[in-house]
Simulated assay, not measured.
Amino acid sequence: MDPVNPKAAETGSSAASSRSLSKPGASWPDGYGRLIFDSVDSTLSEAARRASELTGPTWILAQEQTAARGRRGRSWATPRGNFAATLMLRHGEEPSSAALRSFVASLALRRAFVATTRDESAFALKWPNDVLLNGGKVAGILLESIGDHLAIGIGVNLAHAPGADQVEANALRPVSLAGETGVTVTPTAFLDVLAKEYAELEQQFRTYSFAPIRTAWLAHAARLGEQIVARTMKDETRGVFEDVDTMGNLILRTPKGRVSITAADVFF
């Protein structure tokens, strides 16, 4: 399928063009649109192409991605059975405030996982944008600014996990939801759950700002109070994970004092 103009099942302004794709569940949040594609290069790229058409918050889901991308330009393919979606939000916020949506999204993901598996203890949150399952990475988040939209890209290993040779050295082992829990769920069914959870947390964020999101995130933070390594392209900082501040920065306690880190890859 041509990734620039794929056929889609759409809810909202356009009629569905594929009978094989499900309609949103009864709990689908009011005010949110949904586009479902069979195959695209990247849901983030598709979101950028369609930004001018979107009149409200819209989820864009693909059953397959052929040229997905992650932090620092890393690329991978998303096989069928895994979850690949981007939420497009129109915003007029400062970049620092918009970036806090990674915490909103990761909390929503954790809540969706718990709702799907009924397991409260298996899922943890890794700063700045990953969700862990039994200590392995099961989901990741990437934020991009597209004009006056914020694009929240989300990838979840629902059915398949990459091999160890597909991740960088010292990275956490990739895991899948099915492989770790035995629970199988389709991407469209998972989207129904995630969209509901995200909408509730987005409303909380808009009403009360970051404080309650930060508290909830820290309650499920991986390795809080333990030594970790934060690595950028230029250097690395080793210290005890002490906090996440009111701007979402990672706070490490090091021999030289407390260090605030805005962006980095974290290693355990």
Rank of each mutant, 00 (worst) to 15 (best):
G182K: 06
A108R: 00
I141H: 07
T262E: 12
G135T: 02
V175L: 10
D130N: 09
V183P: 09
P95L: 15
G163F: 04
G33C: 10
V131D: 03
I251Y: 08
V185P: 02
A139S: 08
R110S: 02
R214W: 04
L191C: 08
V104H: 00
L87F: 09
R223I: 08
M1R: 12
V175E: 05
V193K: 04
R71H: 07
K137L: 03
T58V: 09
S27Q: 15
S209L: 06
S45G: 10
S45T: 12
V193Y: 01
V138W: 05
S17M: 11
D235P: 07
A51N: 11
A219I: 03
S75M: 14
N5A: 10
P79F: 05
K7D: 08
A219R: 07
K196I: 06
A16M: 13
A122S: 11
H160P: 09
D119P: 04
A263Q: 10
T186Y: 06
D165F: 10
D192E: 06
A67T: 01
T55V: 08
R34E: 06
N249C: 15
F113P: 00
T86K: 02
S96V: 14
V229E: 12
P3I: 05
T188V: 14
N82T: 02
L107T: 05
Q227V: 13
S75R: 15
N82S: 05
D41R: 07
L172P: 07
L109V: 04
V259N: 01
L89D: 03
V114P: 06
T246K: 10
L100P: 06
S45P: 04
T43G: 02
H91T: 12
L54M: 12
I60K: 01
A216Q: 05
L172I: 08
E94P: 13
A68P: 01
S75A: 13
G257D: 07
G179M: 04
E10P: 00
A211K: 14
A222Q: 11
K196G: 14
F268P: 15
M88I: 06
L125D: 03
A263G: 11
A178F: 00
G33T: 08
A62Q: 04
L61F: 08
Q203A: 15
R74Y: 10
I228K: 00
M233D: 11
T116V: 11
L143R: 04
L252P: 02
P29I: 01
F205A: 06
A164K: 12
P174D: 00
M247V: 12
Q227G: 05
V244M: 13
G70F: 13
R258M: 12
S13K: 08
L172C: 12
Q65A: 03
P212N: 12
V244G: 08
L252W: 00
R118I: 10
R206P: 05
S121D: 15
L142W: 00
A219P: 02
F113M: 13
L133A: 03
T215E: 14
L224M: 09
S96G: 13
G31E: 04
K256P: 10
A171H: 00
K23R: 14
A112R: 02
F37V: 02
L218F: 02
H160C: 14
N134P: 06
Q227E: 11
L143I: 06
I152K: 12
Y32A: 07
V244I: 15
Y208R: 13
P255N: 08
V240A: 07
T66D: 05
Q166D: 07
N82F: 02
